[in-house]
Simulated assay, not measured.
Amino acid sequence: MRYLVDVLNGFSAFGEFSGETDNGGMVVHLRFRADQWEIENFYGKFNSRPGRAERERATQFLVSAGIVERPVVKNPSGPWDALRRINARWMYEVDDDG
């Protein structure tokens, strides 16, 4: 349901990229951010992670079509950040409310 609402609102899109082998195909998840489409993720059979070579081929194709790669964000490394990455939905007593 999460993806359906984003697709209907125009914030997400999905496409299929065919690989060189029968198992090389993948689903491409795109997100619309900052007035441009951005690669969100790739999904193989059973939501597995496709191989690096296939992801790179798909990325090259998408970039040539004007879709940008998602910038790499370095995760913070404070004492509570690992816990936040595991369960980002919860506020903890150590969090500042501003």
Results as ranks from 00 to 15, higher is better:
F46W: 10
V28I: 15
H29F: 07
P50D: 12
N47G: 01
P50R: 06
S48N: 15
M26L: 15
E20F: 07
N47M: 06
S48H: 13
R57M: 11
M26D: 06
F17I: 07
D35S: 02
M26A: 04
F46P: 01
H29W: 09
T59D: 09
A53N: 10
Y43F: 13
A58E: 03
F32C: 03
W37K: 00
R49D: 06
E40M: 01
R55L: 02
W37A: 02
E40A: 05
S48V: 06
G44F: 13
R31N: 10
L30W: 07
T59M: 10
R52S: 14
D22W: 05
R31S: 12
V28K: 02
S18Q: 09
I39R: 00
E54V: 03
G51F: 07
W37C: 03
G44Q: 12
G19V: 08
G25F: 10
E54S: 02
R55T: 01
E20Y: 07
T59I: 12
A58R: 00
Q36A: 13
W37T: 04
E40R: 00
D22A: 10
Q36S: 10
Q36Y: 08
H29K: 14
R52C: 09
E56M: 04
V28D: 00
G44W: 12
V28Q: 05
S48E: 14
A58T: 00
T21C: 06
R57L: 10
G51L: 10
V28P: 07
Y43T: 14
G19T: 06
E20K: 11
T21Y: 04
R33M: 03
A53D: 12
L30D: 07
G19E: 05
E56F: 05
R52M: 11
E40D: 14
A53I: 04
F42Q: 01
G24C: 07
R33H: 03
E40C: 01
S18A: 02
F32R: 01
